[in-house]
Design a protein around this nucleic acid. Structure first.
Lengths: 246, 246
DNA sequence: TGATGTCTGTTCGCTATCGCACCCACCATG
DNA sequence: CATGGTGGGTGCGATAGCGAACAGACATCA
């Protein structure tokens, strides 16, 4: 039952909210373009806006005291950035940077908090996503610890594909190594292995997924698990999303 | 300004809530004893109760599709188990098992949700803890990935000490290896190293921290960071906690 | 056409951790 | 006092990933 009409990008988290609570909320949003590499919020800093990606996607990166960094989450049109605001906290504890350029709906922190206060169904709907994000954080912690780079890379490429809505996207090995917390050489080796198995192609930063199913087999099952968890909690992204402004 | 009166154990998360919202809440709670190894909720199962440890503490364990397990959080009298309920979700995504026997305040899921609905300050106070927990999940993901077993073990012992309120507690290498996701032998080696440096003693499961400050030096800075984050968001545990029932 | 910068591939020695197997020390119990 | 269970120590080869350095391939721009 996959609906393939991508002519009008939408945010499925917003689309999953009840109609009556959505109109007023959308009126406070503005559509913005996000450029690759843009930093939307920094760890420890005040959150100025919440973002609901439409066709962009955003990495959540945690920074340790010794400076090491690791991507712990990725947010596309299935989610939102700025969940802390739902919890009544207006500082972020992670960096957020744009991995895939595109558009997003943006709302100021103040307006967002106001809407959350006013509409219980809105807050509850978004709270469910906070729960999903927490579960995914825990899952990712385990995955990062136990699984080899090749499987993690495959998983990451699938996550990106789902959010980019395309089998092709731009990503250098350098950047991937940063996301997965390994050396660039480690990515090159894993990517070479996936390439030899005919699953992907890449050249100078242009990655092309040739065999999505094969890639899913190469990935750890964490990919499926995270996806299933989302659908169990928030319903299938593709189950007749209601029409949405913008 | 450390208050050392431990005669009447209290849960500091509850103590941090405004007085007026607390009385009714506490009336719905009952004091229960938790025994070592008890499973309080299972991944994917319905949550029956929320728990606020008094002198017990609880491990949050994530399970991957391939069966590997990893502890991703530890909950003592600074927090609570069952945060999903605050988010309007009544299934847990992690296992929770009792690491340190003792007492806790328990409240049924239904009553908990009712109180959250009624009292905004209650919900907001607990929501801040959800934020802390999320931040700690992200931190732990990075720590687990980058830091060596010895530093992680030191951190874990300090976390446990804080929650057990004692420099001595019972924990076998076997169990520690399970928590940290490494071989038992890996723990033995790390523990031997810490022992040789005069930081800890242990024998047949009885662990004794000899030099807390030294152990903190041996641990990665993630320990301090997590602690600081808690205090920044929820205030110091030891800043004159108001008197509390039970 | 050449110069420079970006992206990818390869190699080498090194370390942390793994998996497995076995042994020893201590304790409780019959 | 014998026995079995639990907790801890040691040793060995295997391996995933690290750090560093270098080389080639391609693109852009002067």
């Amino acid at each position: 039952m996959k609906i393939s009409n991508r002519a009008m990008p939408a945010n499925y988290l917003l689309a999953s909210l009840p109609v009556q609570s959505r109109a007023a909320f959308l009126a406070s949003c503005e559509k913005v373009s996000l450029t690759f590499g843009q930093v939307l919020c920094e760890s420890g800093q005040r959150i100025r806006h919440a973002y609901f990606p439409l066709d962009s996607f955003i990495s959540l990166v945690t920074t340790l005291a010794d400076g090491s960094r690791l991507e712990v989450g990725i947010i596309g049109d299935e989610g939102m950035l700025g969940t802390s605001l739902i919890l009544g906290v207006n500082t972020s504890s992670q960096h957020a940077l744009v991995q895939g350029a595109g558009t997003a709906l943006r709302i100021s922190a103040a307006a967002f908090e106001r809407h959350c206060k006013r509409s219980i169904v809105l807050r509850l709907g978004l709270s469910r996503y906070v729960h999903v994000l927490m579960s995914q954080l825990a899952l990712t912690a385990g995955c990062t610890h136990y699984h080899v780079v090749e499987a993690r890379l495959a998983r990451w490429l699938l996550l990106t594909r789902d959010r980019a809505h395309s089998n092709q996207f731009h990503l250098t090995h350098e950047l991937l190594s940063y996301m997965l917390g390994v050396r660039r050489v480690g990515i090159t080796q894993a990517a070479t292995a996936l390439h030899k198995r005919g699953l992907i192609n890449y050249s100078r930063g242009e990655i092309d997924i040739l065999d999505g199913n094969g890639l899913e087999t190469a990935a750890c099952r964490c990919y499926r698990e995270a996806r299933d968890m989302y659908e169990q909690t928030l319903g299938s992204k593709h189950a007749a999303p209601e029409k949405q402004l913008q």
